[in-house]
């Protein structure tokens, strides 16, 4: 139940941000699907490999980036349109807030825990985006070259 609720709200949140960034029409809905898919991958990874949020964050951003790169090619718009709004649910806002709360309350132990979590989660998410973008573009350049050569032969 909680997971379903999270999926729904991730979708709504991503849609909200897509509209806030002035995305229009079908692209905004596709960006919302990106938010949904990213969080679904996070939850799926946690089911498969145990409750490790960092692996979850990595899996989520891999999923999101593949989706965004594919959509960018289908819709012929910059990848940013789909990537940025879809990545919003993966921003560790809650742990950042808690870290600052413990810092101002003078609780050093909890501050270190929460800020380390926020940093590592952001790092695993960025690692997912980087790795996927590089690998995807590499694979795509092979596919694109293949298609071009076939066309030339015809």
């Amino acid at each position: 139940m909680r997971e379903l609720l999270q999926l729904l709200t991730a979708c709504i949140g991503a849609l909200g941000f897509a509209l806030l960034y002035n995305t229009r029409g079908v692209n905004a809905l596709l960006a919302a699907v990106g938010g949904f898919l990213g969080w679904a991958a996070f939850l799926g990874a946690r089911r498969l490999w145990g409750p490790n949020d960092y692996i979850g964050g990595f899996a989520a951003s891999v999923m999101l980036t593949v989706y965004a790169e594919c959509m960018a090619r289908i819709r012929k718009t910059p990848v940013t349109v789909f990537l940025v709004s879809g990545a919003i649910p993966l921003v560790p806002g809650a742990s950042l807030y808690r870290a600052m709360k413990y810092l101002t309350a003078g609780n050093g132990q909890m501050f270190r825990e929460q800020s380390a979590y926020a940093l590592l989660f952001a790092a695993s998410m960025s690692a997912g985006i980087m790795v996927t973008t590089i690998v995807f573009r590499l694979c795509w350049s092979f596919i694109a070259k293949d298609v071009r050569e076939k066309k030339r032969r015809i």
């Binding site: 909680r2 609720l5 999270q6 709200t9 991730a10 709504i12 949140g13 909200g16 941000f17 509209l19 806030l20 649910p89 806002g93 809650a94």
Partner: peptide
């Protein structure tokens, strides 16, 4: 949109 986004993420984080 501001209202919808904050409502969504409030529920998202429990």
């Amino acid at each position: 949109l501001y209202a919808v986004i904050s409502a969504a993420f409030c529920v998202f984080f429990g």
